[in-house]
Every structure is written in structure tokens, then in C-alpha cells.
Design a protein around this nucleic acid. Structure first.
Lengths: 130, 130
DNA sequence: TTGCAATATGTTTTTTTGAACATAACGGGT
DNA sequence: ACCCGTTATGTTCAAAAAAACATATTGCAA
């Protein structure tokens, strides 16, 4: 949260985003795509994952594809046809990346908390209440 | 940087963005707008600032205005007409915010370095090189 | 051998975002 | 009184991103 009641920046928040990108700056994986991976891991299906996240299958599929192309290896192992029509699951790489990301994010959130507090303390100082 | 030569994620980078937003999630100030404030501070003119940053005056003006509306107070004190046609300078709030932001960013960068290293160490572990 | 559900893609439409254009108002200096 | 450079804003055009639509392919199971 931003600060204490009465503070000037009481309802202002500090946010951040974190993502992997190529050296050219193209985005590879961010929060959105990683939660898609997570959902694929849980559901075993790209379609279900997309449904659960309220995005179109087309978009979900395209996102995974783009990330994989930029990385140069598969994040998801997919199969079509068969009993349930098909299924998808994370590749070993995909799972490791997912795990590493959430660990990273946790570390990040920790740091943020401290830094944010300092920031809002500074901008909410009485000297600013002109 | 991402890792050592030979690592799987050698040319993959981790990036982040940091910004202030309302509780509704509307972006108020990010890197771009803050460097606009910085440039206004240096040049004393919204127009010069926009020129230096290679953005249109129209856009620069609109950005400042939007940020101010969302915050509910002025970041820039502007005057039109007169000797040089007009001029702009940071309000006290604007300057404090600018200062606090750059300090914040520095703290952030520090944290990032450590955390990032850990992340790439993890995903580059031999066990991933399947 | 037909149907079903999910993967796989191309195409089109809509929305969002940003750039570009146009014009008014202001006020000190000449 | 007029000029100039800057602030102030509305409007229109273009580009980029996202959503929507359409259709093909696959392989188990009935």
C-alpha cells in the first residue's frame, strides 16, 4: 500500500513488471505468459489454460509459440488428436523456468517492500505538504 | 548481463519497469514522464524538454497534464507569453518526486543485480541443459 | 468411419496508442 | 500596436496490438 491515511500519496501505488527479453529488446516472457505456463501445468491443456485465464485460445497459442521461437527451445510439449482431443504439458525447461521465475518474483517482492516504504516515507514527508 | 558464454540463456536478459499508479491501476508516472520532468528541470521549458527527448510538444504537454490530473496537484509551474514566449519549471512537489524516484530506482537496481544473478544461476544449471 | 475435443494457423475487424496537423492565447520586447 | 516563441488544446491520420472469426488437422473411441 502507498502510505498512511492523510498522506498526500495515500492512494498512489508503486508497481513493477519483470520480464525476460532478447538482447534486441523483444519481450520473451512476462507475468502473463508465465501464468499461462502455470495454468498449462495445472490443467494439462492449452485450451483450458486459456479459458481459465480468460484469453482466447488463439492468443495463448501464439504467445507460447513466440516465446519458444525467441528462446530457441520448447516450453510446452503438445499433442493433438486422441482420447481427449489432445493435451499440453510443460517441457522440463518450461517447468524449470516457471519455478525460477516465481522464486525470482518472491525475492523481488521482498526487496520492493522495503524500497517502497522508503520511497513513500520520503515523498510523504511533511515538508512536501505545501 | 544474462550469463556466461555457453550458458543456455546467454543472450536472454531480465528487465523491469517501475511506475506510480492509482488504485484503479491507471499509470501516473513512469520512466518516460519522469525523464520529461527531469528535462523540464534542466531546460526550463516544456518545449525544449520535448525536443530534447524527441517527442512532440503535444504529447509532452498531454503527459504532464494527465499525471497532474491523476495526482491531484501540479508537477510543473508553467507560464505563457512574455520575454521568451513562456517557460516551465518543476513545482516543489515535482522536484521532490523526481528526486525520490531516482533514489528509488538506484535502490532498485542494486537489488536487481543480486536477484538477477541468482535467477540466471538457477536456470543455467547443467541439469537444465537437456 | 464418423464424431469429438484440442491443437494449429491464416485472415479480418476492432481497439488502443501514438503521431501529425491546425489554431488560439498570452505577454514582454521592439 | 505588432511580433515572436511558448503554452494550451481540439482534431484527424496512421500504426500497432489485441480480439474475433474461420477452418484445417489429428487420433482415440464408439
Amino acid at each position: 500500500m502507498a502510505g498512511s491515511i492523510g498522506d498526500k500519496y495515500y492512494d498512489v501505488f508503486l508497481k513493477y513488471r519483470l520480464w525476460l527479453c532478447t538482447k534486441e529488446g523483444d519481450g520473451i516472457l512476462g507475468e502473463g505468459r508465465l501464468s499461462l505456463l502455470k495454468e498449462i501445468d495445472i490443467t494439462g491443456s492449452l485450451k483450458s489454460a486459456a479459458d481459465n485465464l480468460n484469453i482466447s485460445y488463439r492468443k495463448a497459442w501464439g504467445n507460447i509459440k513466440e516465446a519458444e521461437e525467441l528462446l530457441g527451445f520448447k516450453l510446452v510439449v503438445k499433442q493433438r488428436g486422441g482420447k481427449d482431443g489432445g493435451n499440453s504439458q510443460l517441457s522440463l525447461e518450461g517447468r524449470k523456468l516457471l519455478e525460477a521465475y516465481y522464486e525470482l518474483k518472491e525475492d523481488f517482492d521482498q526487496s520492493i517492500k522495503k524500497i517502497t516504504k522508503k520511497f513513500f516515507n520520503k515523498i510523504n514527508k511533511p515538508s512536501m505538504m505545501v
